[in-house]
Design a protein around this nucleic acid. Structure first.
Lengths: 411, 411
DNA sequence: CTGCTTACTTCACGCCGAGATTTAACGTCT
DNA sequence: AGACGTTAAATCTCGGCGTGAAGTAAGCAG
């Protein structure tokens, strides 16, 4: 059980670099002094390692603060422009490519509409085009990009070996992608490191880093859109399961044998409370309008007191609450964050009822240790979350620059 | 996110000791040679570390094998009698205390019946008595015991600080224990390290180490008894959640708003397929018979073709399959093991139907990567699993002996 | 300019694992 | 029997690590 790899003495340095870099990244500019007490490293080691990071250009000095009567502390921070990251969101209606600096400030963005056809080859070409576009717009050379994070709809099977990103295979049951060798197709267009994950999971990552999940180590980010998904964070890292498909909440059952779902099964949560299902079930649907407009109309009708709309939303809150209770019982999180465009739209109205239903359906003790909140991130969070994938790798490795320069030159 | 503690160069040695000890423990007697290639450590380091472990008495030489033409390899193994472990099962009807050696061979056991009254103070006294009894029977001094693992019914809140075991609080909703300071009460009777967890979880541990879960890193052990529970293993370690209560599968919903459950909620899986619920729902129940006899009678009736019994078991299989599908979707395990006394009893008959229902209700891709099997462990597995708790700690620490000798002397 | 405080740097030390070298413990061949 | 080859294990050297103490830098107050 739990075999741990061998460690050499050099791994210690990598661990120290990672610790300091990470701390500096998340807790703003800090002096070496503070860094030492916060991370537990001795002052000597901090000096040593920060010196290394400084000569590598990964961190830089930025001002100083007085220290009553003594030598002022020099503040250090991660150099924002030292490296860059690309985040890509492949949604139902568009492909969005965004370039960030290390501080995850958006530098350039490129949107391309995705109509009915989701042909993988076409999507890959759009990504390659968008990539060139944002790099050119910001004047950033490709070898300065640490990696490309991509959020895709569907289940992602991670690759293995030296270039795991290139081995990625995507199973997008509702997107029309069946075992698409997405990583291999992308690798033909770019030599940059690839990090692919499900779009709901990258949104969850963004929520954990910058949104309502900030500060918790055990959380579930519930994404409530056209379909329903979830991203589970356990002990600070995303829970992946054996084949990275953990957290497929939308197709858990609320009524075994109940309403048919687009996944082919029956009684799924998504078949009751997914935006598509809600709009379809509401008899006020006007053909030809979009899903978002339909859901907004449903909400308006409920606020005007139309009984059918009120009943539908009440039922949705009850089912969501019960299903969130399942998440509480199974994952025992500190926090549950409700996000996704439908969640943001209906959340303010439904949240109290959801919380009460969760209390009725969950076990008392874990429920008492969980708070349920709404997301506070905008719709661009998928690209942001996608960009955290290469960033996480960068911080974990202690600021190692991928050696794709040769590969770039070779293309 | 993911702060990792500082590491000194001495932690490397602990890591190496742990790696070698662990490998030796699980992969039988091995020569230093094989140990080196298997763990990736250099021959020099293996020699060095095993030398240390040998002088500590944690491992010993045991025979040798020829190496055609050269110096024979000396086999090493963990010294079974160097230390001992205690596993305790607090069940609905009895308290069982078992003493094991390091190889988890049973040395002595003490059972004490637990009738209607589950008074915590009484249970603690029974544990203390049983402990003295097994130690005396095997002639093992208390300071030779690495720790006491205890499986209790209910949700376990782990303590923190220097003596986490003593801070354990148990919330046993169905057992009549409400926030019982179990660790503190036990600490008054013994100075030995305490490791408390839910009984279903310790059973799951046993299943992972020695049962049907062996060899998988991502698994769910579903316990099917009077109630229903689960133990989730992610990446080789038990998934605990924020407050150690993750995996409370029995109270997830199969029909939101359905049958009332003893937990106070409605529509829980346990209210449909728990042994208590099944026996109660079957109209053939004879008052005064035990739950086990009742379930056996239900099974017999179904095998004789009684329609009401057949229908009840068919429905149970359908619901279990659907709920297992939820586990597949949410946790994405490699394997699902069905255990517990009711699972062992009904399993052979229900397993095919459960598997088919799971296939109907789960997403295709994760379901295709999961196998569903029956447990192959006996009823004493809870104590065995409980004993793995201190053992895990021992192996993780690289074979560190707890310094409770002074404490033993002081009592 | 002198002391004083505080932040940072340098350096000796003990310890680590890797890898090369040496020693140990066997078979086999002459 | 004794030399030799072969393989396992022990020993040794080496570069590298973090610690903690000693030393240096940079401000302030008098």
């Amino acid at each position: 059980m739990t075999p741990r790899g061998k460690q050499t003495v050099r791994d210690l340095r990598r661990s120290s670099r990672s610790t300091l870099l990470r701390h500096l990244y998340f807790h703003g500019p800090l002096s070496r002094q503070e860094l030492g007490t916060a991370t537990g490293l001795s002052a000597g080691s901090v000096s040593n390692v920060t010196g290394e990071l400084l000569t590598d250009g990964l961190i830089e000095e930025c001002g100083s603060v007085d220290s009553d009567g003594g030598r002022p502390r020099i503040l250090l921070r991660v150099t924002p422009g030292q490296a860059h990251l690309v985040g890509i969101d492949i949604g139902e209606t568009q492909v969005r490519v965004t370039l960030f600096d290390l501080a995850l400030t958006e530098l350039a963005s490129a949107d391309q509409p995705l109509l009915a056809a989701h042909d993988p080859e076409r999507v890959v070409r759009m990504i390659a085009g968008g990539l060139d576009q944002v790099l050119a717009a910001a004047g950033v050379p490709a070898e300065n990009v640490l990696g490309i994070g991509i959020g895709v709809p569907g289940i992602v099977e991670q690759g293995t070996g030296a270039d795991p990103g290139a081995g990625t295979v995507v199973h997008g049951q509702t997107f029309g992608w069946d075992a698409v060798p997405f990583g291999r197709m992308l690798r033909e267009h770019t030599p940059l490191p690839l990090y692919v994950d499900n779009g709901a999971k990258t949104l969850g990552q963004a929520e954990m880093w910058f949104g309502a999940g900030r500060g918790s180590r055990h959380a579930v980010v519930a994404l409530f859109g056209s379909g329903v998904g979830a991203c589970v964070i356990a002990d600070g890292v995303r829970f992946r399961g054996a084949t990275s498909s953990a957290g497929e909440w939308g197709h858990t059952k609320v009524h075994v044998g109940g309403r048919p779902c687009r996944c082919g099964s029956r009684g799924c949560l998504e078949a009751y409370v997914g935006a598509e299902a809600l709009v379809e079930r509401w008899d006020g649907t006007v053909p030809g309008t979009s899903e978002k407009a339909g859901l907004a109309a449903l909400l308006r009708a409920a606020e005007e007191g139309r009984p059918s709309a009120v009943a539908l939303l009440d039922e949705a809150a009850e089912l969501l609450g019960a299903s969130i209770a399942d998440l509480v019982n199974l994952f025992n999180p500190e926090r549950i964050v409700i996000g996704g465009w439908a969640g943001l739209l209906l959340g303010p109205r439904l949240l109290p009822a959801i919380g009460e239903a969760a209390t009725r359906y969950a076990l008392a003790y874990p429920r008492s240790r969980t708070t349920i909140t709404l997301s506070d991130l905008g719709p661009d969070a998928v690209t942001l979350g996608a960009a955290t994938l290469p960033l996480t790798h960068f911080l974990d490795s202690g600021g190692e620059m991928p050696d794709h320069l040769a590969a770039v030159a070779a293309v």
